[in-house]
Design a binder for these strands. Sequence first.
DNA 1: TGGGAGCATTGGTAAGACCAATGTAGTCCG
DNA 2: CGGACTACATTGGTCTTACCAATGCTCCCA
Lengths: 249, 249
Amino acid sequence: MTEVPAVEARQTGSQRVVSYFKERILRGHLKVGDRVMPERELAQELNVGRPLLREVMKSLVMLGFLDVRQGSGTYIARADIRVLSDFFTFCLSQEQDILEDVMQARMAIECQAIRLACERANEADLSRIGQWLSALIETLGDPEAGGRADFMFHQSIVAASHSRSLTTLYGAMSELLQRSHVQRRATTYRNPNIVRVLVEAHREVFLSIVAKDADQADRRLREHFAIGDDLRRKSLIETYRSGLERKLN
Amino acid sequence: MTEVPAVEARQTGSQRVVSYFKERILRGHLKVGDRVMPERELAQELNVGRPLLREVMKSLVMLGFLDVRQGSGTYIARADIRVLSDFFTFCLSQEQDILEDVMQARMAIECQAIRLACERANEADLSRIGQWLSALIETLGDPEAGGRADFMFHQSIVAASHSRSLTTLYGAMSELLQRSHVQRRATTYRNPNIVRVLVEAHREVFLSIVAKDADQADRRLREHFAIGDDLRRKSLIETYRSGLERKLN
DNA sequence: TGGGAGCATTGGTAAGACCAATGTAGTCCG
DNA sequence: CGGACTACATTGGTCTTACCAATGCTCCCA
């Protein structure tokens, strides 16, 4: 783990605790659901104080590696993607412009997922995507609900890839992405022409999945993203123009 | 963060500490490089004992949020991608088959990154990619060094995207990916025909970046991945055949 | 003016104490 | 005999106090 000593042969107590868990988890001696030795006993075995042991174990809890139950014991946890989500949220708080760049990661994942969805989607997957397409159409006048339906449409496509890596990464970014969807909706929902174009684009995406055409699905999805990009460009131009006119007044 | 209380109005000490940091970091009151109040003082202000405060802060250190210097103080850290790397490593240890699926995430990121690289790569980027292509060719007989050069070739492409999200995600998977590269090399380096095809595929990838043709670059990269897939399929067939012949003997 | 020493500050760690939650075993009653 | 309740043991949660280790700052001397 990140606190492994770089050079020092003799480990600090803290490092010994980290190593104890890292080794046993990574080598499979401790598996999901396995119970860890009680704190007092483990502290003794590792020759550290209990507070130190608890510090490290608290860290592992928050990293999602351990699951602690008071009165019962400490168990190896199943990996929890909220850790990734927290991490991305933290990154965003450091760089206010990152939401724009996260779109690149979003496109990466969705375009790969849609290719897999063309191979792997079952009837339930297709039905779900179709339902969210309908929901998207029904909520055109409402940026909040529409944004959510839009997000769920996309999320269903990623789920239809049946790839744990892709769904994990997408899930990690879902908070950021939902925010992004609502924002994009808020800039578009009043213009009927744009709304119609967007609905058509989503429909084409869905149809290409049904047709199991991976290249076309990828292309349609990228076209769909490009509509949003054009939108934002026009919106900036208008903002700039009206800003100028206000200055001249 | 993941330990925020679901229902309880009155927070435990532990939760108060988490909230203290979450609020200040996410709202920008504490920025990268800012120094945090000393432990004893902060413990008093939050009405908790120092060991408890230290537990939470240790967690935040391992999540990459804080940087602690003994004798100096605690500072808000710059996000550290090694946290993601640890997390993926942990996930892998839980599911032995995940390395295969990580390839999907790899393809997602690289195919999006190569599109961006076609727009954004500067002379230094292109030069670096070219150098790793040469290194790859020079190390054809050595799976270890060749695997590394192969990985670095790909990593340079992702870096040329100049997208923080993509480079962050790719960095998080880099340990897994390097392992994957070495393994793939170990199954191919003895067959001159396959090696020649692979070298050509890498060269085509590079040339399409230089040509700034995003669609072609994407396509070439996918073709390159497909060669590896064919390889593995053939390898499985042979394994199955020789397994059968051994049974008949 | 620069270097060294001393002291204050801040983090690192431990022992011991006590509280909170859970699990287990034993007993009693229907 | 089975289920419910109680008591106690176990395990985690938290705190106080003490001491050690590392860094930074200030003052004094050459």
